[in-house]
Amino acid sequence: MTLTHLNQRGEAHMVDVADKPESRREASASGYIQMKPETLALLSEGGLPKGDVLATARIAGIQAAKRTHELIPLCHALALSKVTVDFRLDEENSRVEVFASCRLNGRTGVEMEALTAVSVACLTLYDMCKAVDKDMEIGAIHLDTKQGGKSGDYQRQAHTSATPIVTGEGMAGQVSVGTRCDIDSACVRVKFLAELRERLGISELSLPLDSLPSADVGGLKAALVKRDARFAKLTEGRVLCAVNQVMALDPTPITNEDEVAFFPPVTGG
């Protein structure tokens, strides 16, 4: 592994990308700004002195992505084909989450642009809200995904999620077996395998049986989606399910200590 921005003498230099092939590049990044619950309430009601906070921060993030090369010394100027900046008001944790994604067909990656968009959107949120809250804190700015280019695709593992619900780690090629429920009451053990595990960023968890609206696979999916929106992936596309290692469908009943696995279509042989 080498640092591409250093030349053989260890001096900073700009990487010559003229000979690299053009390809579709995409990157997404996220971060958050923590604030007082009162500030978040004012923000969502539009009661802050500087006006529409989110619209302003969105424009700031998009503008920043386009000007990344002016801020980061060795970045190339890029003709971005798409920049999006989105916000999620997280009342539970009293913070605004900021998501940015950038895309282009070109010779260099766009992760710096996505990270810059998130950073500047967060700073703009600070600026717009600082009259009522000076304790705000910007945090966890990181790359989530990156596609295209020689170094290949990257997907951040979700182990640093703010509310960790991971109860076990699965290595590629291995799935732990026979784990007991880690809750006292009647419960169901859920496993996520292969690509689904990577997309969800979780390998297994336990859920109290009484949190299921109905004691079957369909009820389990509903309970998971209620717990965390990313489990909506379980109802999209082709996701297969097995209860106690036998193929199952939504109406398949679930009882105490059952092991339920969700996985993509099989590709062995």
Binding site: K150, S151, G152, D153, A172, L193, A194, E195, E198, R238, A242, F263, P264, P265, V266, T267, G268, G269
Partner: peptide, 27 residues
């Protein structure tokens, strides 16, 4: 046995290529 193994046995392939890693799609 091979036809059924490819469509019913719970194996998943992830390919590592010079342009990145990806999970093989069903056929």
């Amino acid at each position: 046995i091979m036809d059924y193994l490819k469509t019913r046995a719970p194996f998943w392939k992830k390919e590592h290529s010079t342009t990145g890693d990806y999970w093989v799609a069903e056929r």
